[in-house]
Design a protein around this nucleic acid. Sequence first.
DNA 1: GGTGTTGGCCATCAACTGTTGACCTCTGGA
DNA 2: TCCAGAGGTCAACAGTTGATGGCCAACACC
Lengths: 186, 186
Amino acid sequence: MAFTARSQETRAAILAAARRRFAADGYERATVRAIAADAGIDPSMVIRYYRSKDGLFAAAVDIDLRLPDPASLPPGRAGEALVRHFLELWEGDGPGEVLTVLLRSAVTNENAAERMRTIFATQVATALGPDVDDGPTRGALVASQLLGLALCRYILRLPPLVALPVDTLVADLAPTVQRYIGAPLE
Amino acid sequence: MAFTARSQETRAAILAAARRRFAADGYERATVRAIAADAGIDPSMVIRYYRSKDGLFAAAVDIDLRLPDPASLPPGRAGEALVRHFLELWEGDGPGEVLTVLLRSAVTNENAAERMRTIFATQVATALGPDVDDGPTRGALVASQLLGLALCRYILRLPPLVALPVDTLVADLAPTVQRYIGAPLE
DNA sequence: GGTGTTGGCCATCAACTGTTGACCTCTGGA
DNA sequence: TCCAGAGGTCAACAGTTGATGGCCAACACC
């Protein structure tokens, strides 16, 4: 299946519409019909191409955080780099939409939650470097601050956080993340 | 309406079942029928008592954070007190359930998001004391860390965060919150 | 003891969901 | 020129959803 260029086009149109709808409405309220309408296509085509709504969702949340390698950063600046990289992902059109989908649905959908867990357990925790047993704990603490920021700024849209420019946010949060990465814990 | 003791009983049973379902499944997937079944009552009664599913939801998310007055705390310890109080709310059966409902649905439901915004804009920001113009900003930063913690520990259930005892979490997060409250910002 | 009010159940509605299969239509190679 | 196979549409399915209104049973009050 899926040979001609035309089919790849509508396939991509469906995926784009799905990401938009999933990001805006969450998994349950984003209907196959609405996605199809946005893509200017019949609902049955959505199923034809992606087998089911779940299949479409799985295709819609496929992302690589591409976290910077901490070894390549000046020591003491890893926190700042992490916060900035994370924020720029969210500010970007493509990844930001995917991340919105992921976070929005991870909150109610167990599959999405599991995906989120592995993403942040593996990508973040291992990005901190292969040090010792409290690596996962530090990674989770970092995740709590970064995801909390994303939640408040991009999902809940708390006005003070929406108003702050990226640079200010980086400056304010970097010390926190830096401490979670390196400082001695309880 | 609603005079007899019996009606108040089933009314309360419906509300309890609703909180449980909303907390477990989120707004969309928690059906009136399932809530009614949990409460051992006919679905139509749910509508009778709460007018609509939305009305039931509004009744289910009614909470007062009861944040401690910072003036009554030893200075320099407000951050610690805030984190501990917040965590104990989530650990409690009653408030924890309501907060789960609120956060789970604020992510997809605009009404719930608005409620969340006012709760954290007013209750947290004003709890920091009536100082100046960056009060809301500081409040939002605090919210980003506290809500991020709740998200990762109680909703996404990141294993390392679930494993940590409350005291450890308080010790690890208190400096962050303390800094957001008091230290000079960018 | 009648009587009206209230709690509760049943049957049902209209709308909407994901999904399926029959059918049309266009294209490109033989 | 023909025609197989692809992309695409249409109508319909079976199930579930929130919500409504009619009906019966129990209880309080006169």
